[in-house]
Design a protein around this nucleic acid. Structure first.
Lengths: 205, 205
DNA sequence: AAATTGTTTAACATTTTTGTTTAACAAAAT
DNA sequence: ATTTTGTTAAACAAAAATGTTAAACAATTT
């Protein structure tokens, strides 16, 4: 059939609703309504609210994986450049999902079962990425390109730094009402890159 | 009667429940149960869940005000010291309420009516504090003790910096499972003080 | 002592939300 | 052409949550 346009629309709207209202606050009927499908249709595709939620989050995770993990597949790129690429891609992913950090941090605390799900889904990939990354970092450290670093820590630094940029954005804009988000994001991404570069090698630039 | 022990207990438990589950996720029956009072009792004191919520948040705000605003009442204290005191007190308040930043940022987005309430309750005091603070900063700037600064911006810097420390704590601990929160908080508070000091006068220390 | 306030139990009403079912029909696939 | 799949509407069932009420009694105030 028409390649599941409605099903996709449901996911789309569900994402918005979950992000803006949280799992507990989102309403399945409202999601159906905003998606322009009948209430029954929603339950036809997704048995329960919980399942719908899992699909939404699974898709986000998939997108994150795609945008980030491919960096490690690039051959013949110095690790320093890879790190820059990593920060930028992660940041760009968040630019397209600016509410995600706040949402994730909140849901992880509010619904421990969600934290479990995240671990289940994300850890295997993360371990793989960390292992690869660590090897490259070690090799680069031997050449004196970077200082010796723990890959997991560095990744966490990147994630935290980028997360932070998005979590404080609404605070900042509430203080400076006319704030230009695009400009803010742009500047912030640059700053984060510089900070991370400085961390992996204080002598760069 | 026995000075409303039960009423207080309800507020206490409600705070925990709201913070840990969000407004939408918290359950009035569960709050009553955990507070060791009957379901009717809860509605006897607080007509609705909404009202209960407002009381809880009102109390938190009150505590924050008390711990922070008294700094500005202290006479004969150099503004630089006041700033240090301010950072430390705000940080200490957050130490006692480590989930509050995450919760507030989330609720403000998720429930716009809560943002309204916050503005209503907090803005008058904030404006007052900012005005006072600005006068003191200007005076100190004239003496060359600090550089010229916008008081509102400085306050925002302090709040953001401290908020940040608490928002990332759970992220950090998920990476380093055995993390010592006390040590982390202690170090972080020092760092924040230094950062702010450096901002108001780059020549200090 | 009488009135008020705090408290419980237990039932009930109401509303909100989730999830199901059935009947009907359209579109697509076989 | 017929079976399968997508879709709706409408009603319904079930569950979960909020809020109310009445009866009874204990503790405290006045």
């Amino acid at each position: 059939m028409k390649d599941n346009k409605k099903q996709k629309k449901i996911l789309e709207v569900a994402e918005e609703e979950f992000l803006m209202k949280g799992f507990a606050g989102a309403r399945t009927v409202e999601i159906a309504q905003k998606a322009g499908v009948s209430h029954s249709m929603l339950h036809y595709y997704y048995k329960t609210k919980e399942q719908l939620f899992e699909h939404v989050m699974g898709e986000k995770l998939q997108q994150l994986k795609e945008s980030v993990s491919t960096v490690f597949m690039i051959e013949d790129m110095p690790v320093v450049e890879k790190v820059v690429e990593l920060v930028v891609r992660h940041f760009e992913f968040l630019s397209e999902n600016p509410d995600l950090p706040r949402f994730v941090i909140n849901e992880v605390i509010v619904r421990p079962e969600y934290a479990e799900m995240m671990k289940r889904e994300a850890l295997p990939l993360l371990n793989d990425v960390v292992a690869r990354f660590q090897r490259e970092l070690d090799a680069a450290a031997k050449e004196g390109e970077v200082r010796t670093m723990d890959a997991a820590t560095l990744l966490m630094d990147i994630v935290s730094l980028n997360f932070f940029s998005f979590i404080i954005a609404p605070i900042l804009s509430s203080v400076k009402p006319g704030m230009d988000f695009q400009a803010y994001y742009h500047a912030r991404c640059q700053e984060n890159v510089q900070l991370i570069l400085n961390r992996i090698n204080p002598d760069i630039k």
